[in-house]
Design a protein around this nucleic acid. Structure first.
Length: 359
DNA sequence: TCTGGGGTCCTAGGACCC
DNA sequence: TCTGGGGTCCTAGGACCC
């Protein structure tokens, strides 16, 4: 039985990885995103804390980041470097022997059985040791949320940043969360918060007190009741250490300048199909459905999808299918973005995993 | 807000079948 | 056919997260 859940989240992960290999950047405003050129199209992936003091944050356009903080060091995203650093961190977490559920490059849940947290200081001791171990092994700082379930642990982390810990349980849930806006919850964003506000629900406590049926009618039979559970901090899902198996795979590109020529668009779809096919081969997976995404200038986005006649990883089949879907749109406006995503067939049964998929 | 790229899951309407 | 009800699949789009 799991007594506690820890949520480990690296502090300014991408910026920290860049600073780690270029120590002269320590303490400076560092902004990573897009091509690294702050005058080109792209948004900020991560900003160092020094850059955040100028108002630069994840998701804002690089051009705006340049205006807010002209002295910042701008760098392109280097995915292989972040993959490698992430693997170092996850290895430290797994070395504890506790189940680890990876959420992304820089986050994971750990399940602590009762005995591991039975000491006089509870799970804080385990969290502190983890922070020391991660720092010693990787040079990276992290924050840890401590909860009686995954939802509360995940939310708690934000209150512990940077380099700290915070405990959020049934006991202090209402004191900490009750008066906050519902979008403080993991799973409720700006759009849903606005819909809730229109229903007269503007705090977590009000959300928790709303009958599930009212929420189901307004927000859907699955989502409505789920939002109510979020409001109460209820989450029964286990820490699941099963290795992640992707269900889809794709690539998309926002072009430096809009594509206006049909031949250019045709060629660009060929490039995307080639990247997707290469990944399918590399990961030994098969596509059974293809989704074409087109963003016409200035920002009107359409998708068209088609089930493939048979599972494929053939570049030409993907390109031809995507071009056919584009032709169906019958729209000659300039193109800002093209994307090809595939949905994958179930992977071949792993033989020596020792995992029971039913469990 | 001149607005990235990689994902996941849910919803709703229509087709199709019995 | 002036057509009931239920189930499943397909497709487009929405919302969220890192």
């Amino acid at each position: 039985v799991t007594a506690w859940v820890l949520h480990v989240d690296l502090d300014e992960f991408i910026a920290a990885v860049e600073v780690r290999r270029r120590p002269e950047l320590a303490g400076l405003p560092v902004v990573v995103g897009g091509s690294g050129d702050p005058t080109a199209r792209g948004v900020v992936a991560t900003a160092s804390y020094a850059a955040r003091e100028h108002g630069v944050g994840s998701g804002i356009p690089m051009r705006r980041a340049l205006r807010l903080c002209p002295e910042a060091v701008f760098l392109p995203a280097d995915h292989p470097a972040y993959d490698a650093a992430s693997a170092e961190v996850m290895a430290v977490l797994r070395a504890t022997g506790h189940p680890v559920q990876v959420l992304g490059w820089d986050e994971a849940f750990l399940g602590l059985p009762g005995v591991a947290a039975a000491g006089p200081d509870g799970p804080e001791r385990v969290a502190e040791q983890l922070q020391r171990d991660v720092l010693a092994a990787t040079g990276l700082h992290c924050s840890v949320g401590i909860g009686d379930n995954k939802l509360r642990a995940k939310i708690a982390t934000g209150f512990g940043k940077p380099r700290g810990r915070f405990r959020l349980t049934e006991e202090n849930w209402w004191a900490v969360m009750g008066d906050r806006s519902p979008d403080a919850l993991w799973g409720i964003g700006a759009r849903t918060a606005r819909k809730l506000a229109a229903l007269g629900i503007s705090t977590v406590a009000e959300l928790a007190a709303t009958p599930a049926q009212d929420l189901a009618e307004a927000l859907g039979p699955t989502m409505g009741p789920w939002y109510r559970r979020l409001g109460r901090g209820v989450d029964t899902s286990p820490v699941d250490p099963t290795p992640y198996v992707p269900r889809g795979l794709g690539h998309e590109t926002t072009y430096p300048t809009d594509l206006t020529d049909a031949a250019e668009v045709t060629a660009a779809l060929g490039v995307l199909a080639g990247r997707v096919a290469a990944d399918l081969v590399e990961q030994d997976r098969w596509a059974e459905r293809l989704v074409l995404k087109v963003r016409f200038a200035p920002f009107d986005t359409r998708t068209r999808s088609r089930r493939l006649a048979e599972p494929t990883r053939d570049e030409e089949v993907l390109a031809t299918t995507a071009r056919g879907l584009l032709a169906d749109l019958d729209d000659a406006r300039p193109v800002r973005l093209l994307g090809i995503r595939t949905e994958l067939t179930a992977p071949p049964k792993a033989e020596n995993q020792g995992k029971d998929p039913q469990k």
